[in-house]
């Protein structure tokens, strides 16, 4: 098994045939990415991290409402551009101004 820590911190139980059958019979949904669509298309600006300025304080990770900042095992951080909505909270809160918002 791959080092889970490095690849992803997301917990998404695999949908088995039983849960998929329930989906057709009852008004339920199953956990998955993109329940609101491809939310990266909402973005006007994207956050870009300057790793040289980053002090690995993980404040941006703690404050991101979308869980689109990946916290690696060494506490360095990486943006998940598939779903980041470009709110800019990470850039606003970064104490070293290591994150810049740049036009798409």
């Amino acid at each position: 098994m791959a080092d889970k820590d490095e690849s992803s911190n997301y917990i998404v139980p695999a949908a088995d045939s039983k849960s998929k059958a329930l989906l057709l019979r009852y008004p339920i949904s199953l956990p998955d990415f993109g329940s609101g669509g491809k939310t990266n298309q909402w973005r006007l600006q994207m956050p870009v991290i300057d790793q040289d300025k980053c002090i690995k304080c993980i404040i941006c990770w703690a404050d991101c409402p979308e869980a689109t900042i990946h916290r690696k095992s060494d506490d360095s951080v990486e943006i998940n551009y598939d779903y980041c909505k470009g709110c800019g909270i990470c850039a606003n809160e970064c104490p070293t101004k290591a994150i810049r918002m740049v036009d798409e």
């Binding site: 997301y10 990415f33 993109g34 329940s35 609101g36 669509g37 979308e66 909505k85 470009g86 800019g88």
Partner: peptide, 8 residues
């Protein structure tokens, strides 16, 4: 999970 429908 990411990709939810909340406002930015």
């Amino acid at each position: 999970l990411p990709g939810n429908a909340a406002c930015p």
